[in-house]
Each structure stands twice: as structure tokens, then as C-alpha cells.
Amino acid sequence: MTNYITSYCHILSNECWINGKKIALQNSDDDITKQLYNYLEMDYPKFFKMDRLSKTAFLGVELIKNNNLALLNYQDDEVGLLFSNPISSAETDLNFKKSYQDGGMPSPASFVYTLPNILLGEIAIRNKWYGESVFTVSENFDAAYFLSYCNILLNKYQEAVLCGWINNKNGNNETFLFLVEKEDLNQLNLQLSLEQLNELFRKK
């Protein structure tokens, strides 16, 4: 069985690349998530309630969709989601803890983002996708996990799998998303393999 990486994107702290090509963002001091939201000309008020982890994953999927409109043709349960990061929801966890320390009240709006898999829900809600979805926490980008579980899902349940690694440690942003499909619909000529994933992960 051969599966193909049909789109990929990198989101860094101040720049973004899709299929190896840099996106022309307006130079701005805004957070990259805000720059991308503007670039995509989005109108999605729920976005502003999200934490940074969810925002980043959400925008990555929007960029890949933009570049791969065929993704919208799948049935609502045919797209799987595999996302991963090294610190779980720690960034929001610290904010939530701050909300109730020093005399404050625990913030419910912050508490609901103290689980990393919330981003899978945000993506599912936006796209009305009901497929398999798994969030894992790993120290580094685990190409072997993505490779095997992508192949398993495509073999067993799904027609396409969207994968994402979001390294948001220490306030950084190092995000790598890729779409895997059974046919090389975008003709990038990238067969899904360990070497290919590691190479795409490293290069922008």
C-alpha cells in the first residue's frame, strides 16, 4: 500500500510555508496566528476564543484546505486527525492556574482549553468532520508514529488523514502539518515514508 503526502505546511513564530513555498504575509508585529487569520481572510468569531495551540492547529488545517480543495469532497467521516505536541496544554494550564491564584476566580473559558485534544474538536466543528482523531504527547516529532498510524487509519477507516506536530514549548511556534491521501492528488510526488517525513519536517 502506497500513500501520499499531498500537502504540507510549516508555521513558525513569524513566517509560514506551504508546500515549501513561503507565504507573503504583511510585515507586522502581530502574533503569527493573527497574521494568518488575516491572510486567509477568515470570518470565524469562535477563533478568538481559542488558545494559541488550537489557533495554530486550526489555521494550519485552513491553509492545507486552501491548497487542497479536494479535501472538501470527502464524506464527513472519511477524514482522520492525528495531532501531537511536547507539552500538552501546559501554556493554557499556567494561565488557568493564574486565574484562580492571588484572589481571582477560576476561569471557565480558560479551563476548557486545558486539554490538548480540544484542538481536534475545533477542527472537527469547523469542518463537520466526524472521523477518527487522536492526540498524543511526545518529546520530539515522532515520524515513526505518524507513518504507522497514518497507514493504519488509511487502511482501516479513513480516506485522508491530517497530521500535525505543534511545538509550542517556551512560547515558540514550530508547527508542521501534512495531509496524507491514498492517491497523489496534488502531484507533489511525495510518497509517505519515514525518510520523506523527516526530510519535509526539517526543510521548510
Binding site: 466543528i125 469542518n127 466526524y130 472521523g131 482523531s133
Partner: peptide
């Protein structure tokens, strides 16, 4: 075993 999202609401 399988999973499915509600695609409805986060909380």
C-alpha cells in the same frame, strides 16, 4: 474499537 467526534461543541 473506534472513535468519532461530535463536530458540535468543545465543552
Amino acid at each position: 474499537g473506534t472513535s468519532a467526534n461530535d463536530a458540535n461543541h468543545i465543552s
